[in-house]
């Protein structure tokens, strides 16, 4: 069942069109990603879903509610983690959780959240003294303290180091496993690939594609490359004769075979027939990055 439904959303700021036309649905219990470069309209889209902005056009239903008209009720059911929003510097971690839990009719026990988010050591630390990763985790904790049905996480891991980023991803998966539907805004391909069940690729205010990460990749008929170092010399001509192969190059004892279909199997079978062992074997496939370039005509990351 769809828990979020966005149909033909449009929003402009003065002459600037932030969201041209965006439609998507999010199923209950999934992690749905909104992926796109900076300025694509991702944040404006989720702000309309959160009821923080009034759309110029289109309809939005969230858990059966109209985000503007039923704003009060929506706020009880939706936890939001905003991009770059802070707490008072001197507010302590436990006080923030205690305070925010008092806003909700049936809050989670914030002491449990503290442990789940690995912040029990920071219980009495002031917000201003937390590291970037700790602030981000606290921010997620505050989004969850009201036991929301839906959590909206905007640029969750921006500015985090790789370890903190992976920890945060584990956390998001754990939250989803506890039954919360997650709407995740990101411009990190790796994050989208790792976390999202499905994602909408947004570019210049429009949805370019909606699919699972693997589905998006398969839409792009990309070539694969197989690299290896043969144990004995092998004639390039044998490789070229394979139906799957489109190109073969060798340099410095390493061979790179480009092709489509079940390329790896074709190459390794040939090598086996000729009693050649492939050392340092690697396969490079189309990534979500390539898919993004294909779909939008430009690279996602700067």
């Amino acid at each position: 069942m769809a828990i979020i439904e966005v149909v033909d959303l449009g929003k402009r700021y003065g002459p600037k069109v932030a969201v041209d036309s965006v439609s998507f649905t999010v199923e209950e219990g999934e992690i749905f990603g909104i992926l796109g470069p900076n300025g694509a309209g991702k944040t404006t889209t989720v702000e309309c879903v959160e009821g923080m902005r009034v759309p110029d056009r289109g309809t939005i239903r969230v858990d059966g509610l109209d985000p503007r008209r039923d704003r009060d009720e929506l706020r009880r059911r939706m936890g939001v983690q905003l991009q770059e929003s802070l707490l008072p510097e001197r507010l302590r971690v436990w006080e923030a959780l205690d305070l925010y839990s008092s806003f909700y009719p049936d809050p989670a026990d914030w002491r449990d959240l503290l442990v789940r988010l690995g912040l029990e050591g920071q219980r009495d630390v002031e917000f201003g003294k937390l590291s970037g990763g700790q602030k981000q985790r606290l921010s997620v904790a505050l989004a969850l303290v009201g036991r929301p049905r839906i959590a909206v996480l905007d640029e969750l891991t921006t500015g985090l180091d790789p370890q903190a980023r992976r920890d945060t991803w584990d956390l998001v998966e754990a939250v989803r496993d506890s039954g919360v539907t997650i709407l995740l805004v990101t411009h990190f391909m790796e994050e989208a690939e790792r976390l999202c069940d499905r994602l909408a690729v947004i570019d210049a205010g429009r949805v370019v594609a909606i699919d699972s990460p693997a589905g998006l990749v398969s839409r792009v008929d990309g070539e694969q490359r197989v690299r290896f170092r043969p144990s004995e010399p092998i004639a390039e001509q044998l490789l070229r004769e394979l139906a799957e192969v489109s190109d073969v190059r060798s340099h410095g004892g390493q061979i790179v075979v480009t092709g489509t279909g079940n390329l790896l199997h074709a190459v390794t079978s040939l090598l086996a027939r000729n009693q050649v062992v492939a050392a340092e074997l690697r396969i490079e496939q189309t990534s979500l990055d390539d898919a993004f370039v294909e779909l939008t005509g430009r690279k996602l990351s700067s």
Binding site: E50, M52, D72, R75, R76, M78, V80, L82, E84, S85, L86, L87, P88, Y100, F103, Y104, P105, L142, G146
Partner: peptide
């Protein structure tokens, strides 16, 4: 300062 730092904005996403 509360406004500038997003403290008020963050609160506006809660029932308070």
């Amino acid at each position: 300062t509360y406004r500038e730092k997003g403290v008020l904005r963050r609160l506006s996403t809660t029932p308070l």
